[in-house]
Design a protein around this nucleic acid. Structure first.
Lengths: 206, 206
DNA sequence: TTCAACATGTAAGAAGTTACATGATTAC
DNA sequence: GTAATCATGTAACTTCTTACATGTTGAA
């Protein structure tokens, strides 16, 4: 449902085609809300039918640019200030961390190192964008400022994940000497079958 | 696709019913990967058909607990160490921030304050869990440690969002005096129609 | 006896992905 | 001419949500 409003928000910046919008999503925007071109084109059709956008112009190779209608602008504003934010986030990285105890210590170490590197590169990249915005390379209007705020969030979240991955490796919580089960090069005995080794928290009467 | 493996991961802790699993998702787990009961029950059926889990016991009111099979354990381990992590995250909060420039300054202030409070409460709550884990109230095994690592990530990400919301309010980037368009109590003239006021970045030839 | 919590499902639909299909224009 | 990029779509499928439907058990 957010995609709908996101498209309206992007069109508020000025007329754009499905292709343009898809490109925006493949860049920074897609880091927090992925969307592929089929979904975008279909959503644009629906928005047009609903009267929230209309065709602005036809370009070179079948290019079709849309523009926001008054109703569309009103709708995206309504969304921003009246519709409750959905605070659930979907992060596979964090989801996986619940299951780290099932991994071989070496695999886990390698995994955390990879994750740290990934988020570090991402944070760096976003910081680069942020700096160019701070130098005024993208203008100084309200829109550029909003971009800057969004970027800052990206930087901070990614940096938090870098710090987390570093912390997890440093405190070495799953690979410490005092917890030596499932050594990498040994065949796993029964401890490796957590299913039977655990009492099984949630009672399962017969 | 992650749900499938998440369920296997949870069942690695010991036998559980669809109801049990749904409850886990409605708690901490659902913060990073939401799942409702219909999806869970259907996924469990599929996993059973695939031979990755099997019925462990039948309980009181039609309760049906599943247990992981050897194939299931192998599969979740394969996922954890061989399958690429999907790094896209879906965060409506951040997505919205791209469109802050469309909001009335007062609405934006209120919005950021609400967001700050929400994430602060969440961070606090997770810190509470983390502390009780650190006191050893949840055991000290590999599984408890994994939980602790997951929790730490939650704390850090939520705290990063608190700091961000605070920063955004403090630097007051969208409400500063030097950018006085769209004052709350005035009727909006043409500046309030960003669609036409902007040159429109992505060329739209006719 | 009645209410809350336990417990499992189906059906319809919305949202999102992947694969397929096609053609125009530009740069080399 | 030929490859990359621009540009739009459809079809099939998976994933996820919402609403509906039903029945059990235990506590007040």
């Amino acid at each position: 449902m957010s995609l709908r409003h996101g498209l309206l928000g992007l069109l508020a910046e000025g007329p754009a085609s499905g292709y343009d919008l898809a490109r925006r999503f493949s860049e920074a925007l897609g880091l927090v809300w992925p969307a592929r071109h089929p979904q975008i084109y279909m959503e644009l059709s629906r928005l047009e039918t609903a009267g929230l956008i209309e065709v602005d112009s036809h370009g070179p190779r079948g290019r079709k640019a849309y523009r926001l209608t008054d109703a569309g602008l009103a709708e995206v504003r309504r969304w921003l200030s009246e519709v409750e934010v959905d605070h659930t986030f979907r992060m596979e990285t964090l989801f996986r961390s619940y299951f780290f105890w099932l991994m071989e210590p070496d695999d886990l170490k390698a995994h955390l190192a990879r994750e740290e590197r990934f988020y570090d590169e991402m944070a760096q990249r976003l910081r680069g964008y942020a700096e160019s915005k701070d130098r005024g390379e993208w203008g100084t209007g309200r829109q550029a400022r909003a971009m800057r705020i969004a970027l800052e969030a990206g930087v901070r979240v990614n940096q938090a994940l870098v710090d987390w991955a570093r912390w997890a490796q440093e405190t070495d919580p799953m690979t410490a000497d005092d917890f030596g089960t499932a050594q990498p090069d040994e065949a796993q005995p029964d401890e490796a079958r957590p299913n039977e080794a655990q009492p099984g928290g949630t009672g399962s009467t017969g």
